[in-house]
């Protein structure tokens, strides 16, 4: 099959590394029973991680991305998820056209 050894090694390394991250969390987290500030820190993980992943796209790419992000945030305040995606994608296509 069209799969050379180096490609396979790279894929395998990526797979093992990724699963190790997921498994570590599963093993560590199952032993946690937190309250107070520690629980607040853990509860902050979802929004903090999701925000961190996209922040450079929104704030350090170009004005079309920043503006489309602002439009998408407004959409997220009132629309369901699919509508948010539609508005975001439409906004970026239009703004990138304007930016040339």
């Amino acid at each position: 099959m069209s799969l050379d050894v180096t490609t396979f090694l790279a894929i395998l390394g990526m797979a093992l590394g990724t699963y190790a991250c997921r498994l570590t969390g599963l093993l560590v987290g199952a032993r946690l029973a937190l309250a107070g500030r520690a629980k607040a820190a853990l509860d902050a993980i979802p929004p903090a991680v999701l925000t961190a992943v996209i922040a450079p796209t929104l704030f350090a790419t170009g004005w079309p991305e920043t503006l489309a992000g602002a439009v998408t945030v407004l959409a997220a305040l009132r629309l369901p998820l699919l509508g948010v995606i539609a508005v975001g994608v439409a906004a970026i296509v239009v703004l990138r056209l304007l930016a040339g």
């Binding site: 490609t7 990526m14 990724t18 969390g25 987290g29």
Partner: peptide, 28 residues
């Protein structure tokens, strides 16, 4: 080409290190 296997694996682990936190939060 040639594929920088070590660099790619390292970058993957760094990007996915967030899964440690995410999985830990979901595990209980």
């Amino acid at each position: 080409t040639p594929v920088p296997v070590a660099a790619i694996v390292l970058s993957t682990v760094l990007i996915n290190a967030r899964y440690v936190l995410m999985a830990a939060s979901l595990a209980p």
